[in-house]
């Protein structure tokens, strides 16, 4: 009943893909038009919006002084959260983050953590006692497919433009100064998501493609010592991948992440 429209759409998408085409006119490995804007908010220490096709995401960064984790007493904390706002899609409801939002935030977080993107030791204020907690809050504003890549990119660009408050410690009292330094960022992890439909892989899936996909695979790459490294990976959705499809996805993601990193470094053009 509810599956008739998607199954017709799926047949159409698969037929087009046979000749390397997609319903929105893209090739299988093309991303949609990307627009990045940074420093869009004054009150946040860092912010960015990303438009990937019609998908629209904003990320804001806030700082808070808190206690370190006992096992890493001299390191600050990065915390990524995602909200699927009810204004972004008829399928989103208000309420605490559901499994989709939690999975998305954890994939974004894992890529940053895996890449050791932020030097968390430099976020330490009083060793063992006080550290900076960097809150990365992702808000989905318009859901038109591939929220993972848009969110990862918005978070990355927001962090790249984040100014960290300077502090002074006088007799174990932390004083936050009205001066800022850039966040200590050492590399730029880029996440690329591919949808699997039939035996084809679609880079940066649109909502239509996501609705009919068998599963998706997200792969994050980071450059370290002049070499590309995988820093996060996640399959999502109830479908299967063959080993060949997985290898192909990783290879495509490697190329696309390098392209995307160049765009980010050139200021989002």
């Amino acid at each position: 009943m509810s599956n008739i429209v998607p199954s017709i759409k799926k047949r159409h998408i698969m037929a087009l893909a046979e000749s390397g085409k997609r319903i929105d006119g893209r090739g299988l490995t093309d991303m949609r038009k990307l627009e990045i804007r940074t420093n869009v908010l004054d009150k946040a220490e860092g912010s960015a919006t990303v438009k990937l096709g019609d998908t629209y995401v904003i990320a804001g960064i806030k700082f808070e002084i808190g206690d370190p984790f006992p096992d890493i007493p001299n390191e600050g904390v990065i915390s990524v959260n995602a909200e699927f706002l009810p204004l972004a899609s008829p399928t989103f409801e208000s309420g605490p983050p559901d499994e989709r939002a939690i999975e998305l935030a954890r994939i974004v977080d894992r890529a940053f953590r895996g890449a050791k993107m932020i030097n968390t030791q430099r976020l330490c204020i009083i060793p063992g006692k006080k550290v900076w907690i960097v809150w990365v809050d992702i808000f989905i504003l318009d859901h038109c497919g591939n929220l993972i890549d848009a969110s990862a990119l918005a978070s990355l660009c927001a962090l790249m433009t984040t100014k960290m408050p300077r502090t002074e410690v006088i007799e174990n009292e932390v004083k936050v100064l009205n001066e800022y330094v850039p966040l200590p960022i050492s590399n730029l992890p880029i996440t690329i998501t591919l949808a699997k439909i039939g035996d084809k892989l679609f880079v940066d899936p649109s909502l239509d493609e996501e609705e009919v996909m068998d599963c998706r695979i997200s792969v994050a790459f980071v450059e370290k010592n002049g070499q590309e490294h995988i820093c996060a990976m996640q399959k999502g959705g109830p479908g299967i991948l063959t080993p060949e499809e997985l290898m192909r996805a990783v290879e495509i993601a490697k190329v696309k992440s390098q392209e995307l990193r160049k765009i980010v470094l050139s200021g989002g053009e």
């Binding site: 895996g114 890449a115 980071v222 995988i230 996060a232 990976m233 399959k235 299967i240 080993p243």
Partner: peptide
């Protein structure tokens, strides 16, 4: 994996691996 079908049903990764290390790990 589903062993007799040779298909993957779960894959996750965190940390850092080169492509060669990834293939070996897989």
């Amino acid at each position: 994996i589903m062993p007799s079908k040779n298909v993957i049903t779960l894959i996750q990764m965190d940390g850092m691996l080169t492509y060669e290390e990834f293939k070996k790990a897989f």
